[in-house]
C-alpha cells in the first residue's frame, strides 16, 4: 500500500527537477513557450504531490495510525517543498514573471531530494506521540510552512535582484543581453520581494499564535522562551524590521534584498537548525 504514495512523491520530485531545468532553459533560450512549460511542470508536480499527500494521510489511517502527514522531519520537508511550489505558482499566476521560477524551484527540488534520500526508517509513517495528538498540529504546521515558503520565494527573488542590480551597475542603461535579459527589472524584483514578504509575515504571525495557543493547551504556557519559540520570534523581528525599513527611503533595493536573504537564513535555522543543533520542547521534527 505504502508504495503508492512514495511513488507519487518520486514523480513530484522528478517534476520539480524537470521544472528547474526547463526554467533555466527558458532563461537561456528566451522562448516563452519554454517558460510556460516550466510553470506546467511545476503545476503538475504540485498536483501529483497533493494526491500523494492525501494518499499518505489515508495510508496512515489504513495502518491504524491516522494522522496528517505533518508529524516528523521527512513529512515536514516534503510539505515545505509543496508550500514553496504553491506560493510560487500563486505569484506566477498573478504577475507572470516566469524567470523567478529558476530561483525558486531549486528550493523545492532540494527539499524533495533531501527527503527522498532519507533512510526508510525516517520515511516510515510513525504513530503520533501524545503531545502531537491535537487538531492544532494541522493549523500550526500549515500556517508556519506557508509562511516559510513565502520567505523562500522572497529569498529567491532577492538573489535575482542582487544578480540583476550588479549587471545593471556594470552595463549602465544599455539593453541587457544574455541570460539576465529575462529577469524582471530590479525595481520589479524589489517590489516582488516585498510582496512575497507581505504574504509570509501574516502567515508566520498566525503560525506563532497557533503554536502559542497549542502550547497553552498542551502544557499550560503560551510562551516559554523555548529555542523554537525564540527563533520564530527572531524571524518575526527580522521581517518586521524589513517591513518598517521599507517605509524609509534608504532601505529599498540592495539592503532590502540582503535583509530578505538573512531573514530566510534565520527561517531555515528556526525550522531545521533548532531541531538538529539545539535542544528543547520541539524535538519531533528532528528525527
Amino acid at each position: 500500500m505504502r508504495m503508492s504514495s512514495s511513488l507519487l512523491f518520486n514523480i513530484a520530485t522528478l517534476s520539480y527537477f524537470a521544472a528547474t531545468v526547463v526554467f533555466f532553459a527558458y532563461l537561456a533560450s528566451k522562448n516563452r513557450t519554454i517558460g510556460f512549460a516550466g510553470t506546467i511542470a511545476s503545476g503538475f508536480g504540485l498536483l501529483v504531490q497533493t494526491v500523494a499527500f492525501f494518499l499518505r494521510w489515508k495510508e496512515s489511517y489504513d495502518m491504524g495510525r491516522g494522522h496528517a502527514p505533518l508529524s516528523n522531519l521527512y513529512e515536514s520537508v516534503v510539505f515545505f517543498a509543496w508550500t514553496i511550489v504553491l506560493i510560487f505558482l500563486l505569484i506566477d499566476a498573478k504577475y507572470r514573471y516566469r524567470a523567478v521560477g529558476a530561483f525558486v524551484l531549486p528550493f523545492a527540488l532540494m527539499a524533495m531530494a533531501w527527503a527522498q534520500l532519507m533512510g526508510d526508517a525516517q520515511k516510515e509513517i510513525q504513530p503520533l506521540v501524545p503531545a502531537l495528538q491535537s487538531d492544532w498540529l494541522l493549523y500550526h504546521v500549515i500556517t508556519c510552512f506557508l509562511g516559510y515558503a513565502a520567505f523562500a520565494v522572497a529569498c529567491g527573488i532577492s538573489i535575482m535582484y542582487l544578480i540583476k542590480v550588479k549587471q545593471e551597475d556594470t552595463d549602465g542603461n544599455s539593453p541587457a543581453g544574455g541570460i539576465l535579459s529575462l529577469f524582471p527589472s530590479s525595481k520589479i524584483l524589489d517590489d516582488l520581494n516585498y510582496r512575497a514578504i507581505m504574504i509570509g509575515f501574516p502567515l508566520l504571525t498566525l503560525g506563532i499564535i497557533t503554536g502559542a495557543a497549542w502550547a497553552n493547551y498542551a502544557w499550560g504556557s503560551y510562551w516559554s522562551w523555548d529555542p523554537k519559540e525564540t527563533w520564530s520570534l527572531i524571524v518575526w523581528f527580522i521581517y518586521a524590521a524589513f517591513l518598517h525599513a521599507r517605509i524609509t527611503r534608504g532601505w529599498v533595493g540592495k539592503r532590502a534584498a540582503i535583509l530578505s536573504i538573512i531573514g530566510f537564513a534565520a527561517t531555515i535555522f528556526c525550522y531545521l537548525g533548532v531541531n538538529l543543533l539545539l535542544s528543547g520542547l520541539h524535538s519531533y521534527g528532528g528525527g
Binding site: 522562551w225 527563533w231 527572531i234 518598517h244 534565520a266 533548532v274
Partner: peptide, 24 residues
C-alpha cells in the same frame, strides 16, 4: 523615529539568539 524601531527590532533579533545557545 522609525530608525529607533529598526534598531530595536534588529537588536532584539540579535540578542535573542544568546538565550537559545546558552541553556536557560
Amino acid at each position: 523615529s522609525l530608525k529607533l524601531t529598526i534598531f530595536l527590532l534588529i537588536g532584539l533579533a540579535v540578542v535573542s539568539v544568546i538565550g537559545t545557545i546558552i541553556p536557560q
